[in-house]
Design a protein around this nucleic acid. Structure first.
Length: 803
RNA sequence: GGGCGAUUAGCUCAGUUGGUUAGAGCACCUGCCCUACAAGCAGGGGGUCGUAGGUUCGAGUCCUACAUCGCCCACCA
């Protein structure tokens, strides 16, 4: 017997353990078609927020749907624990910077800390009813991931797709590492636009405008546009920069915007992207005046040793004092900052490893075109990113905790020495190459840098297929069926994965990409950036509402669309769960003597509701096939409430009173509720794995778990009853309305009802006459003919009846 | 400045390929404890579908322009 009230606290733990013990979701190769899901390994930075539940649940629902459809679902899980996010977490917890702790100890701390936080994530996802392989989660920093990551790297290097070069790169002087374009964010800052006078050596004064006067000591030339009538006569002259007392040439370039600032630009190596372009194009000298930790190098007179900000203030002061500062304007503009720390990025020139992006853009677009994107417009977003990218992918990081490059440099000739595949994984700081350099030298300098964390997380398809191992899944995971993630990492995870798949295999990594939205705390306020709000803490929500209700919220809404957190949706979910429980209790009550057997003598209303179910489920499946789990749920929910409020209200009389209606009509009702509840539970199990399991085990139990059953269409085709059954229900509804308008109970007897009906509807009413009369508490029915569907001519209520 | 999305009831949102009187939940109002459920049931009020044009027999839905909001990117001279 189902309990009077559903206690999610008790039941959810029970079924969580049951699924675990019985290995309900375990993957084993068999003859079934595989559906594989490449789910994002969460970044382990300590913060678990409701956004995790939201987008991960949506993919989880797809896993459950595909399982119900008969696929052998391969649903691995992992953690992205290497790299800067983990390092920053540890630095914060220790209150010390990595270099103060020391490389080895720091790495160990990172490993231990991430493992600790991962266990919280595992708990969370299990409690939320995730059917992924959580216990065997991979770590992107583990030896096996390291090995695969290094194999991938070596394959790229051997193909010439990956190169080592001294080149300008984006630099974060907070995190002390180079970074990639994808790791940038834009931030609006208030700054000062400074107008400063320079002079030509023949005595003409001209003005430049800059927001970054501290870069003046790095000036290498001045540019004007050759089309600029006011300034083009300066071209070819030499500019004298006061205060710092240097002379630089004045050159022409059409990229200078005449109407921006003063129309005269100084080029410093490097202040921005354009400076780098000009530096390459005109072969300009290099004046690297910043130290890696954001100070002016000592060799700069007067300013050496100052921080960038201090230098900015002092230079302005000096130019002002000398009379060269013409004016200052307040300016609000966007600057690029490092997404991990929010600090403005600089540029630096050093030896780095890069993956070729710029030469293969079209291939990346082509692969994007071979993948189906849900929703479709996210594909455009991907294309936009690829088209606008400006740098090769810098994968070197001057950090500690991550995958080491399997690389040494020959001490004698300097040549790059790659590790042999069979020797992987290697750590060049500890291990030595197993063969000498081509030049014969046996001494090597190890590569100290580690790889960008995306270099490894972009190969989750390879990690999932255990690439390079003997016992692998390459045959079933090339390509994987589905990649799912939120829209913030299209440009990183999705893009880089496509890059890697292109270089490693020359093929797409997945068939489909499903992009979920973001949870917003308020309109325009990302949850990850809002202050912690206990109302939205995942564990507290799970405690208060239970996993099924939390999943209801997560599964609502439209794919790819951001949602604002609101607790009305939780309330709605709570009501739905409660209703599922209650109607199941009702049905169980009437199945005490039920035996399932072949039966074809269904009552009219039973045929109608079976047809309604079929109609609903085909729409339901259509939504799910398009990864629209929110719309699918909505669709199912709508049917379900109608089923309870309309159909159950009709059939209950027949179920309660066989002496009045007969045993066979009662059996028809029993069979109908038995079959429909089974299918409803299956459909709902995608969203509510716990309560559906509880009811399923109590009432059906034909498999070890509802999550091992398959959905099949009803064999019955009762579509003929659809339209007139709906109309019959409209009549019932209107008569009930009449009672309600008279402030009477729905049980108020109807003394007399006069209807005019079409022939078809007349036929339907006759077939369902007993149900019809019982539902309305109708005593006397008169039917006339009409060419309309129906007209209610007269309703006489028994007004003396006590409510 | 470029790209994408959104704009529908007081609030949160549905509205499948254009087709009768535009839907749901919450909130509000009126009733109803009827042997599954008051976390419920039966009803009700409430919308010129962002603005202006256009295509069409017919537009919330298609086209054009504009406005507002959000996201991504570019813009550090």
């Amino acid at each position: 017997m189902l309990d009077k009230k559903y206690d999610f606290k008790e039941k959810e733990i029970k079924w969580m353990n049951y699924w675990n013990d019985e290995k309900i979701y375990e993957f084993k190769k068999d003859q079934r078609e595989v559906y594989s899901i490449d789910t994002p390994p969460p970044t382990v930075n300590g913060k678990i927020h409701i956004g995790h539940i939201f987008s991960y649940s949506q993919a989880e629902m797809i896993a459950r749907y595909k399982r119900l459809k008969g696929f052998n679902v391969f649903y691995p899980f992992g953690f992205d624990d290497n790299g800067l996010p983990s390092e920053r977490l540890v630095e914060k917890e220790q209150g010390k910077k990595a270099h103060e702790i020391g490389r080895e100890e720091f790495s160990k701390l990172c490993y231990d800390t991430t493992t600790k936080y991962e266990s919280d994530f595992k708990k969370l996802f299990k409690r939320a009813g995730f059917s992924a392989n959580i216990d065997n989660a991979y770590k992107t920093v583990s030896p096996s991931s390291t090995k695969i990551s290094q194999i991938s790297f070596i394959e790229l290097a051997n193909k010439g797709a990956c190169y080592h070069k001294e080149s300008p790169a984006l630099w974060c002087n907070e995190c002390l590492t180079s970074i990639a374009q994808a790791e940038l964010e834009t931030k609006t800052i208030q700054t000062m636009f400074n107008y400063i006078n320079y002079e030509t050596t023949d005595g003409e004064t001209f003005t430049i405008a800059t927001t970054r006067p501290e870069l003046i000591p790095a000036i290498v030339c001045v540019f004007v546009n050759p089309e600029d009538p006011v300034h083009n006569h300066l071209i070819g002259k030499t500019a004298h920069i006061p205060v710092i007392d240097v002379e630089v040439p004045i050159l022409a370039d059409e990229k200078v915007a005449i109407d921006k600032g003063t129309g005269v630009v100084m080029c410093c190596t490097f202040g921005d992207q354009t400076d780098i372009e000009w530096w390459k194009k005109y072969n300009l000298p290099l004046k690297n005046i910043f130290t890696n930790d954001g100070k002016i190098v000592d060799s700069v007179k007067n300013y050496g040793g100052l921080t960038i900000k201090e230098a900015r203030a002092k230079i302005i002061e000096d130019f002002k004092e000398a009379g060269y500062l013409v004016k200052q304007e307040e300016l609000e503009h966007e600057v690029q900052v490092h997404e991990r720390c929010g600090k403005e990025v600089e540029y630096t020139v050093m030896n780095q490893w890069f993956i070729d992006i710029m030469n293969q853009k079209q291939d990346f677009i082509d692969i994007g075109n071979q993948i189906k994107w849900y929703p479709d417009h996210m594909h455009i977003r991907y294309n936009e990113w690829v088209e606008n990218i400006m740098w090769d992918w810098c994968i070197s990081r001057q950090r500690y905790f991550g995958v080491p490059f399997p690389v040494w440099y020959c001490k004698k000739c300097g040549k790059v020495k790659l590790a042999r595949i069979e020797d992987l994984p290697v750590n060049p700081l500890v291990d030595q190459p197993t063969t000498p350099c081509e030049c014969g030298c046996n001494e090597f300098i190890p590569e100290k840098d580690i790889m960008d964390t995306w270099q490894t997380s972009s190969i989750t398809p390879l990690i999932n297929m255990r690439y390079g191992e003997k016992d692998n899944y390459e045959d079933i995971l090339k390509p994987m069926s589905l990649r799912c993630n939120a829209h913030d990492i299209i440009r990183t995870w999705d893009f880089y994965s496509i890059v890697k798949s292109f270089y490693n295999f020359g093929a797409k990594p997945w068939e489909n990409v499903m992009i979920s939205g973001f949870v917003m705390a308020n309109k325009g306020e990302k949850i990850s950036k809002s202050k912690s709000n206990s109302k939205m803490e995942p564990f507290e929500l799970l405690d208060e509402y239970g996993a099924d209700v939390v999943r209801y919220w997560a599964g609502s809404g439209k794919l790819g669309t951001d949602i604002v957190f609101n607790d009305e949706t939780f309330l709605r979910g709570k009501k739905l769960i409660n209703k599922i429980w209650n109607v199941s209790k009702f049905i169980e009550m009437h199945l005490a003597d039920y035996e399932d057997k072949e039966f074809n003598d269904f009552e009219y209303i039973d045929k109608w509701v079976i047809a309604k179910f079929n109609e609903m489920e085909s729409g339901f499946i259509k939504y799910l096939d398009n990864y629209e789990m929110g719309l699918a749920l909505n669709h199912l929910e709508k049917f379900f409430w109608n089923f309870c409020d309309n159909y159950i209200e009709i059939v209950k009389h027949r179920l309660y009173r066989p002496e009045e209606f007969g045993d066979i009509p009662r059996y028809s009702g029993q069979k109908t509720v038995y079959m429909i509840l089974y299918k409803l539970l299956q459909d709902f199990s995608i969203f509510f794995p716990f309560i559906t399991e509880e009811i399923y085990q109590e009432l059906y139990h034909d498999q070890k778990s509802i999550h091992l059953t398959n959905i099949k269409e009803f064999d019955y085709d009762f579509n003929n009853e659809l339209i007139n059954g709906d109309k019959l229900n409209m009549i019932i509804s209107q008569v009930r309305g009449e009672k309600s308008n008279n402030n009477m109970s729905v049980k108020t007897p109807v003394k007399s009802l006069k209807l005019s009906l079409s022939d078809e509807l007349n036929d339907a009413v006759n077939k369902a006459i007993k149900d019809f009369k019982a539902t309305l508490f109708l005593e006397d029915l008169t039917i006339n003919k009409t060419d309309k569907d129906f007209v209610i001519d007269e309703i006489i209520l028994d007004l003396d009846a006590t409510n």
